[in-house]
Design a protein around this nucleic acid. Structure first.
Lengths: 213, 213
DNA sequence: ATTACATGAATGAATAGTCATTCATAAAAT
DNA sequence: ATTTTATGAATGACTATTCATTCATGTAAT
């Protein structure tokens, strides 16, 4: 039986693709649970139902797995966020969307939340390979929202978007870290989202002209 | 020679204390530079000018060193912060003091900044020993400032101090992380401090009644 | 249709190296 | 002289990575 027409190649590619992503998601799980350094390759292999050696057919080394996990998962979030933002034009609503989307994503995918934390603060100390492009893209969205709001005149012009994006991301990140580690009484996603948004939009100072919306 | 009157014990304690703290500060340096998992005990020993084995006369194991570093250094910051707050009564000024004090401390002691990051997000995943008392004390200060402001009526009453403290700490922490990793154009401490404070106090929305102080 | 050969993905045991920790010994102190 | 403190080489446990081998699947020959 002769058979090398595209369909077979596709099937082949599918299998490979599946194995690749099986490993990715196994790794996400394992890294999140044990942390990068404590995770063993054999744990990942077991979780992915694959032989230890197989992993090295798809990745160069342990760190390469982490980086792939990170880029891939953050990439997904970026796509999702951009889709949700769609052609929303109101910078206030945009920030609202970003906030809830981020918190929801982190709540739904605790593993990812932790991988981000690890990758961000641990590993680039060891390996200086700054292709954190997806992440920069992701927080860049915040900066853009703020810039837009400044153009429309609804956001204060003295706010520096580059600082604000870090401030905002840091806040969201810590809030979801604590949440995932369940170190604190549980608030609902809505409560947290509201709090963060109102703190940033209107600040914590009592305004003399405090009237609803 | 019989000699066990207090002074000798003091001398003894001094010496031990010296070696103990020599190791602590060596460890702070090494952990910050390499991260907990990549740091070698022998690195710490070398940095402290002490034999590898000596370390085990003062600490139970590697993790115990990290925890001690963390508790001890955070403890220092708590003390410093409380001293600076003194009997300041204005919640707005208090937040200002906390903010600049935190950023200054992190700038001055980059090592500590990183150790906090590591300990906070990496290790308590592995070892569930929650004697992070000092840290909770530290962010508790933020919560208290906010509560106080709510009592005086200058801070909005709908803000939840427990969420706000995380939001605020997260923001400060991320800002100093980026700063220390020098991933971004350098802003001055004053600029950052101003930005964070104004974002939190007054929010980013343009206020119709925007008048200085 | 059946058999023989080829391919390369997958396997997992073996390798090779790394370190945290220990401990026999030495130095200091009393 | 005895006890306390310090040393650093040796130990032993642990794991990322490799690689010789297997095996399922595809191809060619008859």
């Amino acid at each position: 039986m002769i058979s090398l027409f595209p369909f077979d190649l596709f099937i082949l590619a599918m299998k490979a693709e599946n194995k690749h992503s099986k490993i990715i998601s196994a790794a996400t799980k394992v890294f999140a649970k044990k942390g990068f350094f404590t995770a063993r390759i054999s744990d990942i292999a077991k979780e992915a139902k694959v032989a230890d050696g197989t992993i090295y057919l798809y990745f160069n080394n342990k760190y390469d797995i982490l980086l792939s996990v990170f880029e891939e998962e953050v990439g997904k979030i970026v796509t999702k966020t951009e889709k949700l933002l769609g052609d929303e034009e109101d910078p206030k609503k945009m920030l609202e969307i970003y906030t809830t989307q981020h918190l929801m994503a982190m709540k739904k995918n605790k593993n990812l939340a932790e991988v981000i934390q690890i990758e961000l603060r641990q590993t680039n100390k060891v390996i200086k390979d700054y292709r954190n492009n997806k992440f920069n893209e992701y927080i860049g969205i915040i900066a853009n929202i703020i810039k837009k709001g400044q153009q429309t005149g609804i956001y204060k012009s003295n706010i520096k978007p580059d600082i604000a994006k870090r401030v905002y991301f840091g806040a969201l990140d810590e809030v979801s870290r604590v949440w995932n580690a369940s170190l604190e009484t549980h608030y609902t996603l809505e409560e947290i989202s509201d709090q963060v948004l109102s703190m940033f939009l209107a600040g914590i100072l009592q305004q003399p002209d405090d009237s609803p919306e």
